[in-house]
């Protein structure tokens, strides 16, 4: 089947079965490998992308269900003001260890900031709890979101 997808502002025609999850269309058809496979079942959030600005688990979303929604991925997120602030905050305190989860983390954080410009810790925990970081970078993910939101953030607490 043929589908028209608008990804990161570019329209692509893809010939794939409609059942194929968007994740694999992005990775194996369009070569956008920044979006990651972690579980394939909606548990880990590594595959998070934006559909009209809202987060979706691309491993669960059939390409036939995307319709005309605009898709944005990690490769493009730096072009938005919030995305760019998040990327800078991520680098300021070097959030990552292995880095594999971070595309999904940033996509979720970006959607959070769009909803709530200065999120509380409870809001951050709630918004981010669908994204697993196996390396356990959670403290810095929380801090980086606060930094990107312009909230006061104490320097990494080290004696």
């Amino acid at each position: 089947m043929g589908y028209r997808l608008e990804v990161n502002g570019t329209v692509h025609e893809v010939q794939v079965p409609g059942e194929m999850p968007l994740l694999w269309v992005l990775r194996d058809e369009l070569g956008l490998v920044g979006t990651k496979y972690g579980c394939g079942k909606g548990y880990c959030g590594a595959c998070t992308v934006h559909l009209d600005g809202a987060t979706v688990r691309s491993c669960l979303l059939k390409v036939a269900s995307v319709g005309t929604a605009k898709i944005h991925t990690i490769e493009h997120i730096g072009t938005s003001a919030a995305g760019e602030r998040l990327q800078r905050a991520w680098l300021e305190i070097d959030v990552m260890q292995c880095g594999y989860c971070q595309a999904g983390q940033i996509m979720s954080a970006c959607a959070l900031l769009a909803r709530s410009a200065s999120p509380s810790d409870a809001e951050i925990n709630a918004a981010m709890s669908g994204n697993i970081c196996r390396c356990g970078c959670y403290n810095r993910i929380r801090s980086a979101i606060r930094i990107a939101a312009g909230l006061k953030e104490e320097a990494d607490h080290v004696a």
Binding site: L32, V33, G34, T35, T73, I74, E75, I77, G78, L86, Q87, W90, L91, D94, V95, M96, G99, Q102, A103, I106
Partner: peptide, 8 residues
């Protein structure tokens, strides 16, 4: 690699 990671 951090700068590359945040850009996917």
């Amino acid at each position: 690699d951090s700068a590359r990671i945040v850009r996917g």
